[in-house]
Design a protein around this nucleic acid. Structure first.
Length: 718
DNA sequence: GATTTGATGATTTTT
DNA sequence: TCATCAAATC
């Protein structure tokens, strides 16, 4: 058995990890240290040495992309397909377990998956049925709260409410929401994990079976696991199966959605024989970039401790650019990009990273002006588009007519005369008799509870679904989709809309048919239709497909995790924006912002530019900013400050900002520090008017931003 | 049933 | 500022 090819091109630490004897293994893998490589080599090694056969391996990732890449790498290394191996996302694998054990869980065989948009709508409906005001119970927040509870493994009865009215009400909503899901056979994302966990917890024979089955468990991006995911892994591992966890505490940036960085520490406690291996040699970035990133992250407390190093050269200094305002920042970045392109850097090797999506606009406009092709990540994905989801909702009703979320979505889409009055009657009837909307509709018809006209409309809808169902027996998947598009009249409806949007939507629907045509199903417990629907929910589809031509890459720092580029621009390094003001006050959250900055910096291979704007226009008003503390935390040795070139100030002050052309009113310049008797100290952020009406906007340290009439405010200059 | 108006509020995102 | 969304209007 020759395994040398699997170990040859690894450094000592990597080799130690790949060839470790079976047992719990924790790999702390710094950015760019070959983490994915080690994981894939480890699996290939286990298979090649005969330690375990592919179908006894469970490898879990967070994204579908990571799962795909992992499988591909292993297959390339072993030169054979490993279809039997369980490689997938937490949600994907949980889903597979639920499909296999739907009876044990009391789920309908054709249960459907609720994505976050569906969940949001469902919660809105629940709030309405409980007659709660959306202003007091914002659906988004309720959704957030419910998912938070589920991520912690808590069912309504286990929520700690301390008898507080607010919590009690949330529990009530949570309970009602669960009831709706149960009645409709719907499972949301968090529920997939929760159910998969309960399945093992409550059925000892099933647990034993999977414990025997998964002889090796590997978890990628371990710092991103939440409570329930970790509990599930532990359960599966039992006290025999070796678990390999790979992660980096310094790259934990998803705490806000339930990820528990502590899981890394808990791991060695829960699995006492754990071997910990640190991968600290970096193969990605230059010395300067690495040293700067190390220095930055060193400001965080309670790290596991790790210092990246490289054998490569120091490379160029990190550039720091202080722009006059956000437009000028964009202009600098784009002209810098242009010279990189001229010097031969491929466009797709250049990335502009930012903290929040709103920042992309100015950058896009600048790119557009210079006619540089670019791609913004993070838009709407194929299966999330409204028209596609509508078509899928028809499919879902065909498979499971009790799916209330889908029923509500399309009962009157396209409009067919089933107005809100009629739907409300169905809702009431359903709730009073514990029926799904579909059952209620049939019942209402049978009992003639509505006018003839409304009844006919409802009958028409029921017949459409019934008709599609009939035609779909023994039909190919894509034919089912074609039936849906035709009989729902969705396609016709969009084709009649001659606007660009309408045409786009019609095209997307036709694209859905080809997606169905190309779809291949690996799991055989499932009908093609159900498998396709689950696929659509679990893998919302890559961004706009086919746009892989050479483009400058724009994305948020979060999206950039796991990627790397020759040239990286990190923009908007300003207090309040990055670190974001919503995360600045709590130490823990501030540290997460710092990790985010660390992630951003370590994306760069050769060249890193940091920039900020002294004035930024945000939410309509221009605001004075301060350079981010993260800039100060990077030692000056690694940084080269770029000065604005001489012509810039006159060029930018001309037209862009009225505030710039009218910089002061009665001695109050923008940025002037002032003191007010009641409000304390603050900074002038805006001026308007003149004479006795002149007003200034002052951002006070304690009380926030206020408009004051200069004549009355009695402001002191300081 | 489509279109216009007005209020609102605005990190980060995958599944 | 500007996009989104629900209510109001034609």
């Amino acid at each position: 058995m020759d395994i040398s090819d699997l170990l040859d091109n690894l450094n000592d630490k990597q080799r130690e990890a790949v060839a470790a004897p079976p047992g719990p293994l924790l790999i702390i893998a710094g950015a760019g240290s070959g983490k994915t490589r080690v994981l894939a080599h480890r699996i290939a090694y286990l298979i090649r040495t005969g330690e375990v056969s592919p179908n006894n391996i469970l490898a879990v990732t967070f994204t579908n992309k990571a799962a795909r890449e992992m499988r591909e790498r292993i297959e390339n290394m072993l030169n054979m397909p490993v279809r039997q191996m369980w490689v997938g996302t937490f949600h994907g694998i949980a889903h597979r377990l639920l499909r296999a054990h739907w009876q044990d869980l009391g789920l309908p065989q054709t249960f459907q998956i609720l994505d976050s948009d569906d969940q949001h709508r469902t919660i809105k409906r629940v709030l309405k049925s409980l007659e709660l005001d959306e202003a007091r119970w914002p659906p988004k927040q309720v959704q957030w709260w419910i998912n938070g509870q589920k991520d912690e493994g808590r069912r309504p009865e286990y929520v700690e409410h301390h008898n507080a009215a607010y919590e009690l009400q949330l529990v009530k909503i949570y309970t009602a929401y669960e009831e709706v899901c149960r009645r409709s056979g719907l499972v949301d994302f968090a529920e997939l994990l929760l159910r998969a966990h309960e399945l093992l917890l409550k059925n000892d024979d099933i647990l034993k079976h999977y414990q025997r089955h998964f002889k090796h468990i590997l978890v990628d991006e371990f710092q991103d696991t939440n409570t329930i995911q970790y509990a599930w892994v532990r359960l599966l591992a039992g006290d025999k199966n070796p678990v390999l966890a790979v992660g980096d505490d310094d790259q934990s940036i998803y705490g806000w959605r339930g990820a528990k960085i502590e899981n890394i520490q808990r791991f060695s406690q829960d699995f006492p024989a754990t071997t910990t291996i640190r991968l600290e040699q970096n193969y990605r970035s230059t010395g300067n970039i690495l040293n700067a990133a190390n220095a930055l992250i060193d400001n965080n407390d309670g790290r596991l401790g790790k210092n990246l190093w490289t054998e490569g050269s120091d490379g160029e200094l990190i550039k720091l650019y202080a722009a006059y305002n956000d437009l000028e920042e964009a202009r600098y970045i784009i002209s810098s990009i242009q010279s990189f392109i001229e010097k031969g850097t491929p466009r797709h090797e250049i990335a502009i990273l930012y903290r929040s999506n709103a920042q992309s606009r100015v950058l896009e406009e600048a790119l557009l002006r210079r006619e540089i092709p670019y791609r913004v990540y993070g838009g709407m994905r194929f299966f999330e588009r409204a028209e596609v989801k509508n078509a899928l909702a028809y499919c879902r009703l065909v498979s499971n007519p009790n799916d209330d979320a889908s029923f509500e979505r399309i009962v009157n889409t396209p409009t067919r005369g089933i107005g809100d009055r009629s739907v409300q009657i169905l809702r009431d009837h359903a709730r009073q008799n514990d029926l799904s909307l579909w059952q209620a509709a049939n019942d209402v018809l049978a009992k003639k509870m509505v006018t003839a006209r409304a009844g006919n409309a409802i009958k028409g809808f029921i017949d459409i679904i019934g008709n599609i169902k009939l035609l779909s027996e023994d039909a190919e998947l894509f034919e089912i989709v074609e039936h849906v598009l035709h009989h729902s009249t969705l396609l016709e409806h969009h084709k009649n809309d001659k606007s660009e949007k309408g045409q786009m939507r019609a095209e997307n629907l036709e694209e859905l048919v080809s997606a169905a045509r190309q779809y291949e199903n690996e799991e055989d417990e499932l009908s093609m239709l159900d498998a396709f629907l689950a696929h659509a929910a679990l893998e919302a589809g890559e961004g706009q497909a086919g746009e892989w031509e050479s483009c400058v890459q724009l994305m948020t720092l979060h999206t950039a995790k796991g990627l790397e580029f020759d040239v990286v621009f990190l923009s908007g390094l300003e207090e309040g924006l990055f670190p974001h003001k919503m995360s600045m006050d709590e130490p823990g959250r501030l540290e997460e912002e710092r990790r985010l900055c660390y992630v951003g910096m370590t994306r760069a291979r050769q060249n890193l530019t940091l920039s900020y704007a002294e004035i930024r226009r945000l939410h309509g008003t221009e605001q004075y900013t301060q350079a981010s503390r993260f800039i100060r935390e990077i030692p000056a040795d690694y940084v080269e400050e770029i000065r604005m070139n001489g012509s810039a100030p006159t060029a930018v002050t001309s037209t862009s900002y009225h505030a710039a052309s009218q910089p002061e009113a009665q001695g109050f310049a923008l940025g002037q520090r002032v003191a007010h008797q009641k409000f304390g100290e603050g900074i002038v952020t805006s001026c308007e008017g003149d004479g006795s009406h002149a007003r200034v906007q002052v951002n006070f340290m304690d009380v926030g931003s206020k408009w004051l009439v200069i004549a009355y405010a009695n402001l002191q200059l300081i």
